[in-house]
């Protein structure tokens, strides 16, 4: 069975790859491209650790075939910081201690960035519902929600 020839853009870089039908975008990122910042927590779309954006839309990369990335623009955690500067969300997560073990953090950050692009001034409730698909077992979400709200505030005043 022939592999699929996929042309895609990841964090702004053109990428060309071959994948099997059964490989998910998550498999492609982690196993083929060695982009292991995107995490696998369940592979059933229930934990959000594998969150990425596809043409700006937040999705679980475990619920999308690699071949479907053809012609799309993918955004991952590796593309959040630019140059020497961390994204305000990354900075606020550090300042608020919004991570403990850190394994859910890449997915939470990618999801939060997608939220703030759509809604620069979310309420606490909006943050909580938007992030309901990003499971965190360490923090109880308190500091995560505070960090996202604080980053939103800083980005609005920037």
């Amino acid at each position: 069975m022939a592999k699929h020839h996929v042309h895609t853009t990841i964090n702004g870089d053109p990428i060309e790859l071959l994948c099997d039908t059964g490989e998910t975008l998550l498999d492609v990122l982690r196993n083929q491209l060695n982009m292991t910042g995107t995490k696998e927590g369940c592979s059933t779309g229930d934990c959000g650790a594998c969150s990425v954006t596809v043409d700006g839309r937040l999705v679980c990369s475990c619920l999308m075939l690699g071949v479907e990335a053809n012609g799309k623009k993918i955004g991952t955690i590796e593309g959040l910081a630019s140059g020497d500067a961390l994204h305000p969300l990354q900075q606020k997560f550090l300042e608020h201690a919004a991570l403990q073990c850190g394994v859910c953090t890449p997915g939470v950050l990618v999801a939060s960035k997608a939220l703030l692009e759509k809604n620069p001034d979310p309420t606490e409730t909006e943050v909580r519902y938007w992030l309901a698909g990003n499971l965190c077992r360490c923090t109880g979400y308190d500091k995560i929600v505070r960090a996202v709200m604080d980053a939103a505030k800083e980005m609005r005043s920037a």
């Binding site: 292991t36 955690i77 961390l86």
Partner: peptide, 15 residues
């Protein structure tokens, strides 16, 4: 270890 964990650099068990 914070920056590694907000940028995806940190290497977990499967990484």
């Amino acid at each position: 270890d914070g920056v590694d964990k907000v940028t995806g650099r940190a290497r977990f068990g499967a990484d």
